[in-house]
């Protein structure tokens, strides 16, 4: 397990117990489908579509408070480490694994920290789209996840479709408007040799999962 300082742990528990969970379960409200497919412990990767900052909060809230510190969102270093306050909060309270998006970073070391977390038995949250994009649309999936899985047979990758969070708090908006949101958890995705085929399969699965959302059928 990755090491967490006692003070950070207390703050983390308070933040998730008193703010995030009430916000997610009362302010928003989740329709969760196939909860039984959620991997109870690591090493595991949750791959979801990304439309809102709330996505991470919702996925972390699926786990009990005792497990929250083992759930680690992989997040863009240039965004979340942009200033010192945000960086401290993201690293210590949320517990992100920063990922450098710039091309200059050397390929292999890019995922070093992710691999270390997986080896320690953590659960990683990844958004293969890379950024939040247009509300309620799945953009192109990046291949990073494929590299992440390479040579790690024990790691299961669970695709999760989220819907409604881009309505509740879209990109570039500060006002949260309450909506019930759907969380549809898929079967673990079998690894493939070809990264392109793998990402295509993942996109296909996410789109299939989205079809079973309650709050989407009206469209």
């Amino acid at each position: 397990m990755s090491e967490v300082k006692p003070l950070s742990l207390v703050l983390k528990l308070l933040f998730f117990g008193l703010i995030v969970k009430p916000l997610v379960f009362v302010g928003l409200g989740l329709n969760i489908f196939h909860r039984e497919r959620l991997p109870p412990r690591g090493p595991a990767i949750l791959a979801a579509n990304h439309n809102s900052h709330l996505d991470t909060m919702v996925l972390m809230s699926l786990y009990p408070l005792t497990q929250v510190r083992r759930v680690r969102p992989v997040a863009a270093a240039d965004y979340f480490l942009a200033n010192r306050v945000l960086a401290w909060f993201a690293l210590n309270v949320i517990g992100i694994i920063p990922l450098k998006r710039e091309r200059s970073a050397a390929g292999r070391s890019l995922f070093d920290e992710c691999h270390r977390a997986l080896d320690a038995g953590d659960i990683l949250i990844v958004f293969p789209e890379g950024s939040r994009g247009a509300p309620e649309q799945i953009g192109e999936l990046k291949r990073g996840v494929h590299h992440l899985l390479k040579g790690r047979d024990k790691v299961v990758l669970t695709p999760i479709a989220l819907y409604g969070l881009g309505r509740a708090l879209p990109k570039n908006e500060a006002l949260l408007v309450p909506f019930n949101c759907d969380v549809v958890i898929g079967e673990p995705l079998a690894p493939m040799q070809d990264s392109e085929a793998f990402m295509q399969r993942m996109k296909q699965v996410l789109e299939e999962l989205l079809r079973s959302c309650i709050t989407r059928r009206g469209e």
Partner: peptide, 10 residues
């Protein structure tokens, strides 16, 4: 949440 709403209506 169940009825279609426009993104502009938030």
């Amino acid at each position: 949440s169940i009825v279609p709403t426009r993104q502009a209506d938030r």
